[in-house]
Design a protein around this nucleic acid. Sequence first.
DNA 1: ATGATGTGTTTAATATTTTGAACAAATGGC
DNA 2: GCCATTTGTTCAAAATATTAAACACATCAT
Lengths: 182, 182
Amino acid sequence: MSIDVGARLRSVRTTFGLSQRELARRAGVTNGLISLIEQNRVSPSVSSLKKVLDGVPMSLAEFFTLDLSAPPQAFFGADELLELGSAEVSLRLVAAQRPARQLTVLHERYAAGAATGEEMLPPRGEEAGVVIRGRIELTVGGATRVLGPGEAYYFASQLPHRFRNVGRETCEIISACTPATF
Amino acid sequence: MSIDVGARLRSVRTTFGLSQRELARRAGVTNGLISLIEQNRVSPSVSSLKKVLDGVPMSLAEFFTLDLSAPPQAFFGADELLELGSAEVSLRLVAAQRPARQLTVLHERYAAGAATGEEMLPPRGEEAGVVIRGRIELTVGGATRVLGPGEAYYFASQLPHRFRNVGRETCEIISACTPATF
DNA sequence: ATGATGTGTTTAATATTTTGAACAAATGGC
DNA sequence: GCCATTTGTTCAAAATATTAAACACATCAT
């Protein structure tokens, strides 16, 4: 068998709630290739696999480190959250090992001044979160508001939205979205 | 640039004191391929890279996790040693990040009953070690002896040699060989 | 039902990797 | 000196990965 790149990729892709075509578009490859890789009908070149994972995004190291056979787990230490984002915007995904979940929960950290782009997420979900440290400016649809510790948000994913840390310290948020459409 | 698989592989290979041909032989690929990969003239398929790393041996996860730009480091915590062996025979390599070293130092652990095969190592080095826990049976050339804590060994690598844990508890050894021919 | 979109899969053509064998340069022994 | 090895590199041929477009199957709205 020898490592089953296909199952890994399928698990990652479904965990992030992406179709083969959507992942292919983000990665700049064809949907057919994703299909072939997931079926283990080809062994992708490292450069191709890198391109595909950039569409998630996920590093090669993370990809090969992922524990697919991890048993259902109820508790996760801080070290057990999958680190996803950049240095500016850190996203720690809870229970990343488990594919096809209904719910995604993140521990997000925004460095001072950091912001997300205009998010384009799947059309049928909702997102909510609570700020636990720092202050974040959140724009949803036409409305903008600055949230501090203890304050929260909740909106439908299809609305354009953007997060921006306008303060001086790192901002931390615990967030969730549904379905698993991160 | 995007991850520089070539530099990684070259670093790993030289760290282990292998020529392109020797690594190719162990991995079941051609030496030309190793050369091309190391020059980044091709982006190997994951299956090929896996085959190559099996010849070291090293996992894909380790390979992509390796920190090439690690600054020269003088102290290494137990967690910082590169785990190489199997569950039976664990080899923890000190300072694995640093290529082209003169000396290799290992923290070895042999489970009860575990043994190495007949070692076939490069012809121009020496090996030495001290047992720190448990008991190990060491055969060098025609001679066999059981070593316990505080006892040590020292021999030329080209002699056929074999380690076997004949006791009930795990045996631990700190060993070194030169040149970096592990 | 029907058409329109979404999904994952398959196929032939194309592009890339991989091989096998050659090459030039360096090393060691005599 | 010279020969025999060993090193890493290169090249055309063979094998494999990747693309682009079609396919079959679902879902959803009309």
